[in-house]
Amino acid sequence: MDLFDIMLSSITIFAGASQFVFLEILGYQAPAWSIVLGVFAVNFRHILYSASLGRSMGEFSTMQKFTAFFFMADPMFTSSEHRASQQPLMPAYYFGFALIQYCIWIVFTYLGAAFGSLISDPQALGVDMLLPIYFMTMVMAFRKRKNWFPIVVASGIGSAFFYHFVGPPWHISLGALMGILAAVIMAKPSGFIGVEEDDG
């Protein structure tokens, strides 16, 4: 894989997990279809993301919406969901944030590809935990949502279970499904949307 392929990946795919899965399966000398399947599996959560966030995109034109979804990486999704729970999600906010993330991703891809071998011990700097720690703050940012605690507990146990018995990347989709299932079970069987729902 040369610099061109690496840069092309970040520019067109723009998904950390996809690109890591791509590299990992590429390393196994596996057939190309298994890479496509692996990337689909690890991205399955994005289908849930767009179903969820699409509901908050009332201020977006169709064109803006379909452009916006290209940039919907995990941090983009979580920050937009959080924003939408406080005030209407505006295209300016979304694309401003998206552009910053996209530029950072591409610049760091280049720096990593060009100078990555110079970092002797990335672990000592905590680089490996930067994203998990960020995501932990996002989990906590949603704590005022309905049934947050049982959802997080179910999802966490599910994730650990599937990580151990099925293996990555399935723990993400299957683990999350446990949390979502908990939410569905605990939801009131009747009632109308918008009458008593008030997002924290």
């Binding site: 959560r45 849930l48 993301y49 179903a51 969820s52 509901r55 995990d74 999704f77 979580t78 969901e81 959080h82 490996d128 935990m129 998990p132 995501f135 932990m136 996002m138 989990v139 949603f142 704590r143 949502r145 309905k146 049934n147 947050w148 959802i151 997080v152 179910a154 999802s155 966490g156 599910g158 994730s159 650990a160 990580y163 990555p168 723990h171 993400i172 989709s173 299957l174 683990g175 999350a176 499904l177 446990m178 949390g179 979502i180 908990a182 939410a183 569905v184 605990m186 939801a187 009131k188 069987p189 009747s190 009632g191 109308f192 949307i193 729902e197 997002d199």
Partner: peptide, 27 residues
């Protein structure tokens, strides 16, 4: 229209997915 249970499921997506992402690296 969206069924209340579907709505509850979608409401749960962010916390559920991010939790599932975060648990293995934490452990």
């Amino acid at each position: 229209s969206i069924h209340p249970r579907v709505d509850a499921a979608l409401e749960a997506v962010p916390a559920a997915v991010i939790t599932a992402i975060v648990i293995p690296p934490a452990l």
